[in-house]
Each structure stands twice: as C-alpha cells, then as structure tokens.
Design a protein around this nucleic acid. Structure first.
Lengths: 232, 232
DNA sequence: ACCCTTTCGCTACGACCCGTAGCGTAACTG
DNA sequence: CAGTTACGCTACGGGTCGTAGCGAAAGGGT
C-alpha cells in the first residue's frame, strides 16, 4: 500500500481520492482522541516555542503519541500546523451592531484579537510563507481559511443590503461575477490591512484604528455604490 | 571580546552601540565584496530553494565563502535573509501619473510585481513569521522595510494635496499626529491588501484588481476628506 | 619596516531534528 | 477466528545548526 495519508478534518476529503471510496471499512480505526490530542499539542507547542522551534518530536511527546502516528496523518509540519490553526478562524463571527460601519469595526477587532494569540500569529505567516513553494499547501490554505472566512464578508454585505446601506447585487451572470469580485476585494482589504498592521507594522489594532479603518472602507464602499451601482 | 557581530547595511548602525564608537579602526577590514556575494547568494538560494530549504551552508558555498564568515556578520538565517530582501523594496517608486487614483494603481502594480518575485514572496512572510517570537527581528523589519517604504505614501499624499485632490494637513501638533496616523493607516491598507491578495488568497493582482482597489481606496479618502477635513 | 589587530578559510565537532523502517502488539470487522 | 489496519517503540542514516580551534592573510599605527 502506498499510504492513505491523512484525511483533512475540515473538508473531510482524504488525500488519494476524496471520491466516496470504500473508506477502509476494515481494520483498527484511527483514534479520534489522538487527533484531538495532537492538534491540541500542536497549538500548545506553537504558543511556547513558535513556528521556528516547533518540532514533530516535541508535539508527539506532548500528545503522548508516537512520532510515527503523526506521520501517518500529516505529511509534514506545514499541514499539521495549518490544520491545528485553521479551526481557530471558525470562531470568528459577525455581530449585528445595527449598521455596516459598526459591523466592520466589530469583525476587525475580533480578527485582531485572534491574531493577538501567539499560536495564530506565528503559524499563519509561516504557513503562508511555506505555501509559496508548496502548491498543495496553497490550495489547502485557500479551502481551509480563505474561502471559509469569506462568509463573513458575504453575510455583512447581505445585511447591509437588507438595511439599504448598499445597493442590491445586479442580476444576471455578469452581476454575480461582479459581486464575487467585490467580496474578494473587500476580504483582502480587511484581512490584509489587519494582518499587516498587527504583524508587519507591529502596531496595535485598537479601537481608534478600527474606527478609522472602517470609516475609510465604508466611505469607499458607499461612495462607489452611489457613483456606479453597476459595479464598474 | 564578546563579538561585534554585524553592522546593518541599511541603517549603518553596528550592534553593540551604533554610537560613533571607535569602530575598530585597526585590523583587517571586512571584505565588502564578501558582503555583496553573500547577499546575492542568499537571494539566489531563496529563488531556487525557498525559505524553508535554504541553508547557511548552501549560501556560503554559493558565495564562495566559509560558513564561519556568515556567522561573523549575521547572527542567524532570519537576519541574513531580511537584509538580503529588504533592499529590493527600495526599488519601488511612485510614478507621477497625474492623478491620485492612477498613482495608487501604479504603486500597487509595482508592489505586486515585486511580490511576484520568488525570493521576495518566500522571504517576506517567513521573516514576519519569525519576528513574532523575535523582538530584535521585529524592530529590524520596522526600520528596514516598514518605516522606509512609508515614504511612498507620504509622497503620494503630498502630490495629491498639491493637486488639490486632498485637503492639506491641519496645522498644529494634533494635526501632525492625525496625519501620521493617516499615513500609517493608508500604508497598512495598501500593502496589506496587496500582500493578502497575492500570497494568502493566492490570486493575481492584475490591472482590473488594481483599478477596483484604488477606486475603493480613493473614494474612501476623498469622501472622508469632504465629510470631516479635521481628520476625525 | 615592524608589530598588533582583526578577518578569513578550513576542518572538525556535538547536538539536534527529520522522516522512515521494522517489529510486535492492540483494536476492530466479517 | 482470520484478516486488516492502527499503534507504540526502537533504531537509524542523512542532514543542518552553530561553534571552536587553528594557521594564514590583510590591513592600520608608529
């Protein structure tokens, strides 16, 4: 056997062929508890050691699991750490604060506090860095983090449209495409600005900054909608 | 002697005390050519191997220099790579295209093409990741990249103000502080959005995207300036 | 010229980590 | 019970790290 390798806990797909394969109905099943212990141990190790000094042997010891068990599920450090951290992003929510600007402010502050956690900040950038030379990791990031968290932007837009703060999406195929581009653009602007402020500039994302940023973004969105609702 | 360690080619300050120290006037001087060769070799290794597989021994071999010579100048891989990459950001310029939106578009596309280079993309994120657990590296990034490239935002604002596209900065100490915050905010928004789009979302920063992004940003800036020139 | 200081290349080294192989045992299925 | 797979353990070759120690080279100061 070549090696079934891990299944991704986020997508549920297994490596060889996500297809509804027989899924190995026989033999001893993998310990779900070991999965949990390993991911918990990975996060703990990230907190104490950071990405650079985290070792597979250390994680195995913390999880009270043999090192070989790690390699049966994850091909390398990158994928393990990504899976360990990606779930943290699911904690993000979009609180309904009544108006779009307040919603943006809220999600910005929430995202900032997530990035303030040592395991998140040290792992996110490292995994992205590795993904520049690892195609498989790149698609994994997209499906486990990027596409997943765009839900926040989509929800925010829907709410704003329901409130009349933004015009509804134009109909038709071209309209849907434009809306998709807009979601992607807004997502990159928000997430990018917060990450850059917090990790590159290394300055605090406090309420004042969140307020000024969301005012800037909201003004841009509202102004564009007014000028050309077609979404040119 | 404890070890003078390297001088930073960007700031010119030496580690022990940048102060106008005696600067060791005696003894054999360090080979400036070796500096160049090492940094060139580092960039070449980044292109071929990426951050993760780059080794000090490999860099030394490429530069035709003993490994110990590397360690006499840089304390570790992080600082070496940062110095090797930081100078690339100095190539960025702000072309005068006549109006603010076109200027933003220009710098966005330029920044994107810089980030498209393999040595830049693989190193920038990795160094930032390491900086989350390395205070010295963090301040080095700020001085060698962040503070240095804010010049682009400052210049762009000045041009726009001269053209009347943006109101002049309010006078007084408070006004200067507000202007500084604005520069920081704009810098994080532009750099963050481009980096996030290119490296995290892993989608192309093409002309269409640059155009939509700069339209969004410009509308926000102009709208805010109109609403409250005080810079609230 | 002469000494002093510092750098350079080289070799060697211990410590550490990686990822895998091989084995015997445990757990679950039919 | 037989078949299949996961698990723990040990051991290993291969690689990198960062340092120490040496003799030789290249400058500066007088």
């Amino acid at each position: 056997m070549v090696a079934p390798m891990h299944r991704c806990p986020l997508t549920g797909t297994s490596s060889p062929a996500g297809r509804a394969g027989p899924r190995s109905r026989t033999g001893r099943p993998r310990s779900a508890e070991a999965d949990r212990a390993i991911l918990d141990a990975t996060r703990a190790a990230l907190v104490e050691l950071g990405w650079g000094k985290l070792t597979m042997g250390d994680v195995a010891a913390r999880a009270k699991v043999a090192k070989t068990t790690l390699y049966r599920r994850w091909a390398n450090k990158n994928e393990l750490v990504l899976d360990a951290v990606a779930v943290l992003f699911d904690e993000l929510e979009l609180p309904d604060r009544g108006c779009l600007q307040a919603d943006i402010e809220g999600v910005v502050l929430q995202f900032a506090s997530l990035l303030a956690r040592p395991e998140t900040k040290t792992a996110l950038m490292a995994v992205v860095a590795e993904s520049t030379t690892d195609e498989a990791l790149r698609v994994r990031i997209r499906s486990a983090v990027v596409e997943r968290q765009k839900r926040l932007v989509i929800l925010g837009r829907e709410r704003a449209q329901a409130r009349g703060e933004l015009p509804p999406d134009p109909a038709g195929e071209e309209g849907a495409a434009a809306a998709g581009r807009a979601v992607g653009l807004i997502f990159d602007v928000i997430a990018g600005a917060v990450v850059h402020r917090a990790l590159v500039s290394a300055e605090p994302v406090d309420e004042l900054w969140a307020q000024q940023f969301s005012a800037l973004l909201l003004t841009g969105l509202a102004g564009l909608a007014e000028a050309g609702p077609a979404g040119a």
